[in-house]
């Protein structure tokens, strides 16, 4: 195994341009799970990003929040103005693993790991986050809701690093994060939901109910149109269009759809006049 520890982004991009098979390492909370048993991965090349100071920034500027690729959950929980400006980020970060994971895990790692059950991705997507990718050839920005192309598939090329996440700063009158897991801490979501409303419209994002975290555009349209909803059952036709959950070791498809309808109904009844 070879580890490269570039000190600057420039060096890191040069490295992966020449070795696109090299694996970037941030907090390693995904990469090192059961590490001694992952023998095949011990032979690979790794590019450790942890020395690159320019990736650590968290900045509020020009009407947006910029999270550097090394920003952790713990950084966001404790950053000033975060609770007021981006409460969904704080709410989701506090539900990731436990403190030991929050202290190490990065938002960029959560995005690139591409788990359909991720907790960081749904709230970022509900805030219209944009993924900033860089390679030696230049910079590219991909809206997070277009970043995933299939289960564990993303638009990131192997010679690209996520360098930052940009999130527009908007006033939201609805901002809800829900995670239903086997227990309150240290659990992977059976259903995750992020709901936000601002001048830009409704965003409803679901996790663990499709091959990728995804926006629920049929639900969003129903909310925009003010379609009357008299109970969780009225949401099922839209849910059927938006998500394709599976039965797996954590839950069943039927349970996930039922829970999703009830969460949506409970969360929106107080805030949407069309919900009665």
């Amino acid at each position: 195994m070879t580890v490269h520890q570039p000190g600057t982004l420039r060096e890191a991009l040069d490295l992966i341009a020449g070795k696109p098979e090299a694996v970037p390492v941030a907090g390693a909370t995904d990469l090192l799970v059961h590490w001694p048993a992952r023998v095949a991965e011990h032979d690979r090349d790794y590019v450790d990003l942890s020395r690159i100071a320019e990736l650590k920034a968290i900045a509020f500027r020009n009407g947006e929040l910029m999270l550097g690729a090394l920003a952790t959950y713990w950084d966001v929980i404790h950053a000033g103005r975060m609770k007021e400006g981006f409460p969904l980020l704080v709410a989701a970060a506090r539900q990731v693993g436990a403190v030991q994971i929050q202290a190490r895990g990065t938002w960029a790692g959560n995005i690139v790991n591409a788990s359909p059950a991720a907790d960081g991705v749904p709230v970022l997507m509900a805030y219209d986050a944009v993924v900033v990718l860089a390679s030696r050839a230049g910079q590219e920005e991909v809206p997070l809701d277009r970043f995933y192309t299939g289960y564990k598939q993303t638009r990131r090329r192997p010679d690209q690093l996520v360098v930052a996440i940009r999130i527009p700063w908007r006033a939201h009158d609805v901002a809800v994060f829900e995670k239903v897991g086997g227990r309150r801490a240290q659990a992977i979501a059976k259903v995750g939901l992020a709901i936000a409303h601002s001048a830009a419209g409704w965003r409803v994002v679901a996790a663990s109910v499709a091959p990728t975290v995804r926006r629920c555009t049929a639900i969003e349209r129903l909310l925009t149109d003010g379609t009357p909803v008299r109970g969780p059952d009225d949401l099922h036709p839209a849910i059927e269009r938006d998500v394709t959950p599976i039965d797996d070791l954590r839950s069943t498809a039927a349970y996930r759809k039922t829970v999703m309808a009830r969460l949506l109904y409970d969360d929106l009844r107080g805030v949407c006049p069309a919900f009665s």
Binding site: V25, A28, L32, W35, A103
Partner: peptide, 18 residues
């Protein structure tokens, strides 16, 4: 659990080189 730069972390998930 150990403290890394003052924060609790799982040492089973920390690459030593970091």
């Amino acid at each position: 659990t150990v403290w890394l730069d003052g924060l609790p972390v799982n040492s089973c998930l920390v690459p030593a080189y970091q």
